[in-house]
Design a protein around this nucleic acid. Structure first.
Length: 250
DNA sequence: ATTATTTGACCTCT
DNA sequence: AGAGGTCAAATAAT
């Protein structure tokens, strides 16, 4: 199953960019089809996993829904000097700094996270301890529209086998973690489930234009986000084991 | 001129 | 104190 998902993702990454430049309508349909396929796959995988869950670790895995213990932040009072009053600060829940995981996060590993439909704006970059590549922080471009979705993208380390720089670039994989759901755009296209994915790429910073066609449903699960091959080696979800592993089966 | 990205400072949590 | 996450001024791109 995992292999299948991986292959579908690869095909998706290959096809969508090509279609995107040619026929937006087809690209849009392709996105939905891919996501539908993926969604079916995930659904089955989730059920299977639910049955097998007891086995613990679950080395394999695919999606992770990480739930955080707390939504964090205390209300920080922005009293006195300087605060950013942009617009209006919401005194209460907006803490702003340090949000860690919102409700749940979904991680995904993919190379070339592009074309999925959401538009993101980069708001930060950080080097993470011991990691080779920096982590990039993005938030939904429509944040004003009440959309609090954010994501982080980080290139996975490449092992020795790397040959040329080019090769590395092409094989580069990125770990993308999504936080929050998109509440912007309510325009859902029919399809049952809507996938939403997003992507951006980081390296080079060159191409990042995100596509504009995004349509997103408000479905809250990001399928895409779910699937993937997850190399847990790079990610330490220390918390996730205890919290939610959100599978459907009770 | 406007909008997006870069990047160091700032903030919070562990 | 250090690490991770966010802000915002400066800068770059459009």
């Amino acid at each position: 199953m995992m292999r299948q998902q991986e292959l579908v993702m690869q095909l998706r990454a290959l096809v969508l960019p090509l279609l995107h430049g040619v026929d937006y309508t087809s690209a849009d349909i392709a996105v939905q089809l891919f996501d539908d396929v993926i969604g079916c796959n995930i659904s089955v995988a989730s059920k299977l996993e639910g049955c097998l869950m007891s086995t613990g670790a679950g080395g394999g895995t695919m999606v992770e829904l990480v739930d955080d213990k707390s939504l964090v932040r205390k209300s920080m009072t922005s009293s006195t000097t300087g605060d950013r009053t942009e617009g209006q600060v919401k005194p209460n829940s907006v803490g702003q700094k340090r949000r860690r995981n919102d409700k749940r996060s979904r991680s995904l590993v993919t190379h070339v996270p592009h074309y999925d439909g959401h538009q993101w704006r980069k708001y930060g970059q950080k080097n993470i301890n011991g990691r080779q590549h920096p982590r990039n922080y993005y938030r939904c471009a429509y944040r004003e529209r009440n959309c609090l979705a954010t994501k982080t993208v980080e290139q996975q380390e490449q092992n020795a086998g790397t040959s040329s720089a080019m090769a590395v670039e092409e094989n580069a994989k990125y770990t993308v973690v999504y936080y929050g759901d998109h509440t912007c755009k309510n325009h859902s296209t029919s399809m049952v489930q809507a996938p939403q994915l997003v992507n951006m790429d980081l390296h080079n910073g060159e191409m990042d234009q995100t596509t504009t066609n995004a349509q997103e449903p408000e479905a809250d699960l990001d399928l895409p986000a779910l699937l993937e091959v997850f190399d847990s080696s790079l990610i330490n979800w220390q918390d996730w084991n205890e919290d939610v592993i959100y599978n459907l089966s009770p």
